[in-house]
Amino acid sequence: MKNFFNKTLTASWLQHLVFWGLSLYAVGSYFSISNELKTIDFIYSFFFHIPLLWLVYVNLRYHIPRFLLKGRYVLYLFLSLVNLAAAYFIHQVLFDVIVPILPTDFYMVSFTDASVLLTIFIIYLVLTTLLKLSKSWYELQQLEKEKLSLELNSLKMQINPHFLFNSLNSMYSLARKKSDKTPDAILRLSNLMRYMIYEVSDEVALTKEVDSINDYLDLQKLRTEDANITFSVEGKIENRMIAPLLFFPLIENSFKHGLKGDRGSNFVQISLKNSDANLDFQVTNNKGGVGHTEDGKYGGIGLENVKKRLHLIYGNSAQMEIKNTDEAFKVSIKIKWND
């Protein structure tokens, strides 16, 4: 019942009906010659609204979507002037030709000055245009939110199968050796899976994001014992919220494309620095020779997704910078806190 009520309230036809009902009453009151509204006032208002309906719906259905929203502003302005002239012509024909010959006991003429009439038409044209643009903007924001939600759900489910496979293999090897590290490795994988699947929402605590990065790196270290993997955190990170899983594609990218050099020269360096003004996050990994780095291709879809998420969530408050040299690949993210 509640969903039906909400859908009814947001229904386009109901919104239009309420708008024109209020408009009918307002115009009737404005042109009424007595202190109370009479039948003649509503009849006059009805005929007065016929050119208004033409003006508004030609604008809403054709001119705005085909010209204004597509950036063809000069043509839209010209067509709006033509539309105003057409509405004025319809008004004159109605009250000078059609209304006088109608079989009615009421005598109605258009006693509105041309300047006043055009002013009313312009007000309706501008008002409905603004309402349409605000609705289009709201719908666009809702679509962007839905897109973000879908991207986040996709990100939650795209834990690299190779990472899981390698982690389980490493745990199996530890178990075979009856290593004391086995319970801790299982716990870290469990924590990481729980966080990604169940705890991630629109925003998460920065402390939880850092804990999950540590779990991820500890699991990666099980299979990359010869690599130098570091993660440093500077500044206070408590009481800060952030978009979830924002850094994981960058970290995963460093393991996927990096660590391809000679034994002992591989490294992944990650740093997070937080202050009252900014959050700075950096990931740097070695590259090795071109023959070891998948034809030198770095980044790809993962980095593009991060760029899009940064733009959609933080707008101009976030920047991402990429430095690609012969020896290393570095990605930096800077987020400006707006509180």
Rank of each mutant, 00 (worst) to 15 (best):
M1K: 02
K2C: 05
F5I: 15
F5E: 09
F5T: 13
N6H: 03
N6E: 04
L9S: 00
H16P: 04
G21L: 15
G28E: 01
F31S: 10
S34Y: 07
N35G: 15
I40T: 15
I40K: 15
F42W: 02
I43V: 15
Y44N: 08
F47A: 02
L53D: 01
W54K: 01
N59L: 09
R61Y: 06
I64Y: 08
F67M: 13
F67Y: 15
K70L: 10
K70R: 14
R72G: 08
L79S: 09
S80E: 09
S80C: 06
F89V: 11
F95M: 06
D96W: 10
V97I: 10
L102T: 00
L102P: 01
D105T: 07
F106E: 05
F111Q: 08
T112G: 00
D113V: 02
L127W: 10
T129K: 01
L130P: 00
L133T: 06
S134I: 10
S134Y: 13
Q141L: 14
K147H: 12
M157G: 02
S167Y: 03
N169R: 04
N169W: 01
S170A: 14
S173E: 01
L174D: 05
L174W: 02
K178W: 00
D180Q: 04
K181W: 04
K181C: 03
A185T: 03
I186N: 06
L192M: 13
M193S: 14
M193Y: 05
R194D: 14
M196L: 00
E203D: 13
E203A: 10
A205Y: 10
A205W: 12
T207V: 09
E209V: 05
D215P: 03
D215L: 11
L219R: 02
L219H: 07
K221M: 15
T224Q: 15
T224E: 14
D226A: 15
A227I: 11
A227N: 12
I229H: 14
I229Y: 12
F231Q: 11
S232V: 04
E234H: 06
E234M: 01
G235M: 06
M241D: 12
E252D: 07
N253F: 01
S254C: 08
K256Y: 10
F267G: 04
V268Q: 07
L272F: 13
K273F: 10
N285K: 08
N286H: 13
G289T: 11
V290W: 02
G296Y: 13
G299R: 04
G300S: 02
K308Y: 07
R309F: 11
H311Q: 11
L312S: 06
L312A: 09
Y314H: 07
Y314W: 05
A318G: 08
A318W: 05
Q319M: 11
Q319V: 12
E321V: 15
I322G: 14
N324L: 09
D326N: 13
E327Y: 00
A328Y: 03
K334P: 02
I335Y: 15
N338F: 03
